[in-house]
Every structure is written in C-alpha cells, then in structure tokens.
C-alpha cells in the first residue's frame, strides 16, 4: 500500500484543506501502519506537553558570578604568561644577537681592548673640544658686552623674578579665597 502523501500530511504542521483531510481520514480507517504512526506521534506530543521546563539548582546566578571571577583570573594569568613569553623571547633573541657579535671579540681580546681604549680617548677628546668651544664663546660674549650693561641685565632679571614670585603668590591666595 502506498503511504504517501498521507504520512507527510500526518506529520506536517501545515493545515490541510478539506479534501486532504477527507482523504487522510479515509486512509487512516483502512491503514493500521499510518494510524499507528498518528497515534504514536500524538502520544509523543502529549508527553512533550506534559513535561515541564527544568530549572537549575538554587544559587545559579551566584555560581555564575564565581565562575566569571575564576574565568577572569585564568584569562589574566594566561595573558601575563603570554606577555612574559613575548618579553622573554625578545630578550633571548637580543642575547643571541649580542652573543653572535661578541664571538669575534672573544676570539681576539687584544683587538677588543684596543678598540675600547680608542673609544675612550675619542670620548675624552670630544669632551675637551666641547669645553673649549663653550669657554671661547663665553669669553667672546663677555668681551663684547660692557660691565654696566651686565649690571643692568642682572638687575632686570632680578626684578622680573621678584615680580613673578609676587604675582604667583597673589594668584594662589585669591584662588584659595574663592574655594
């Protein structure tokens, strides 16, 4: 016996038209297989309807908050380790590069020492040159400006400093009053 389309109609949730309903009823009267299928599905549906939703044990939200704290702690721990790993990796790469550069120096230490002495002498020479330059500029400037101008400049500078100090004091005092 052909059970299609009756089986599909039985299990479909779409509404059937009048003819389809009539044909299905006729078929169910003579077909045990399809009527059993209908009855079984109706039983299952009733069972689903009679089965309520299950609730979790009391304190679910509290347990979730604890889980969130634990989750954040683990995430921070992992992030710290990742950061440490990246830093350690970077440091290791730098050390390896430094080691590679140091190998030729360690093979011939006299060259390395000579290089160091040369650099030291060069540094001292640079410092001396810079010192001489600064002194010569200062000397030229002091020779160019006469002593009365120097006294005037110094006096003006002192006045400006005193004025700045007094104004600052006054401004600070008025702000405190406003508060």
């Amino acid at each position: 016996m052909n059970h299609q389309p009756f089986e599909s109609w039985l299990l479909s949730e779409d509404a059937l038209d009048e003819d389809q309903t009539h044909l299905l009823r006729e078929h169910l009267e003579i077909c045990d297989r399809c009527s059993n299928l209908e009855e079984s599905w109706n039983d299952v549906h009733r069972l689903f309807d009679a089965t309520p939703r299950l609730a979790p044990a009391i304190g679910f939200a509290d347990r979730w908050q604890e889980r969130l704290v634990e989750h954040n702690r683990k995430r921070n721990f992992v992030q710290s380790w990742i950061l440490f790993g990246i830093t350690a990796g970077g440091a290791a790469i730098l050390l390896i590069l430094l080691g590679l550069q140091a190998i030729p120096l360690l093979r011939s230490p006299e060259n390395f020492l000579l290089f160091l002495i040369y650099r030291l002498v060069a540094l001292v020479t640079y410092v001396q040159t810079a010192q001489n330059l600064v002194f010569s500029i200062l000397k030229t400037v002091t020779d160019l400006v006469p002593p009365p101008v120097w006294i005037g400049l110094f006096g003006t500078f002192t006045m400006v400093c005193v004025l700045w100090f007094v104004l600052l004091k006054q401004l600070t005092y008025s702000r405190r009053m406003n508060l």
Partner: peptide, 21 residues
C-alpha cells in the same frame, strides 16, 4: 522537524507497542 517527528513516533511505537489491530 518532519524527519524528527517520524523518528520519534517510530521509536515510541517500538517502546510502547500499540495494540495490534
């Protein structure tokens, strides 16, 4: 859903045999 309903109905029929007509 159609397939699931069919499977569920057949399984139910196996578990709880309906009276043979």
């Amino acid at each position: 859903l159609h397939r699931a309903r069919r499977e569920l109905a057949l399984l139910w029929a196996e578990q709880v045999p309906l009276p043979q007509t």
